[in-house]
Write a protein that binds this DNA or RNA. Structure first.
Lengths: 146, 146
DNA sequence: TACGATTATATCGTACACGATACAAATGTA
DNA sequence: TACATTTGTATCGTGTACGATATAATCGTA
């Protein structure tokens, strides 16, 4: 590859990665609107539905986000009454994030989302095997860059 | 897959896509800092180095960004004197984005970036063939979601 | 047990990112 | 040629995203 080719938009792997991420996020918009949450807020709830009552630091690790991103996001989820923020008793530095009843109930309304997204990709030419390989490469990238 | 498994963070393809995109973007940070530009600004310049003197609308299409994102970004690049914004003579609605001399010169300082990023992934277990497949799947996703 | 180092969050400033809305220039058509 | 429609950008409000910095609680150790 020449230097000129190296600098082509499409040849920088980061670019399609960046575009694909934003476009797929956009696909969630209409579905999440019904739950009155954004995509990153959805990811936080996914993490909590899986493991509830976690300190902020644990969530930053799982989501690969900085506390400077997560703290205000969590406050918005608190305002929506989906989560609670409580100082840990054993460690006053820690803030524990827990689902409210409302937040737990939301899970039932969210179960259909993965299916609907899968459905949107049904007509694409991406089969299960390809997806598995794609997923594995993503994991490698995350491992390497994280 | 059970509904509970469907709602696991890792099983939603969107999530690793979102993380991988942010983490790779972070890798560019230190390299781009030397050019005094951000990652999205770098992508705009890549597009211009490839095809100069384009209307804003053309850039939004190539980068899959809204004008509400691009307009302020372009103004910042203008402030840094890397690009110029001129109303088209043939169509007064259009704003043509062109590289300044300084912006063209920046290309020389940027040619090493793709190499350096590739270098950072050298020790990873991702080979050329895997990368090609990964790239093709990304394209399919973009085509389908775009 | 003082006290410097570390840890867990929070705050601030800057820069995206996008939907909704606005508006002027251009276009199509009666 | 009036004028409704479309097109190309811009503006505004909300919500990420992150580095730098701040601060209180905890820990390590002399």
């Amino acid at each position: 590859m020449t230097t000129d080719e190296m600098l082509r938009l499409e040849n920088q792997l980061c670019f399609p990665l960046y575009v694909a991420s934003r476009l797929t996020t956009r696909m969630y918009g209409p579905l999440l609107e019904e739950l009155d949450i954004t995509y990153p807020q959805y990811l936080v709830l996914l993490a909590l539905w899986q493991t509830d009552n976690q300190p902020v630091g644990e969530l930053t690790k799982r989501l690969y986000l900085e506390t400077s991103t997560l703290t205000p996001l969590l406050k918005r989820l608190e305002q929506k009454q989906y989560i609670s923020r409580k100082r840990s008793v054993t460690d006053e530095r820690s803030v524990l994030i827990a689902l409210t009843e409302s937040g737990q109930a939301l899970k039932e309304k969210a179960v259909c989302i993965p299916e609907k997204i899968t459905e949107l990709f049904r007509s694409s030419t991406i089969d299960m095997q390809e997806l598995t390989g794609f997923y594995q490469t993503l994991q490698k990238i995350i491992q390497h860059a994280g």
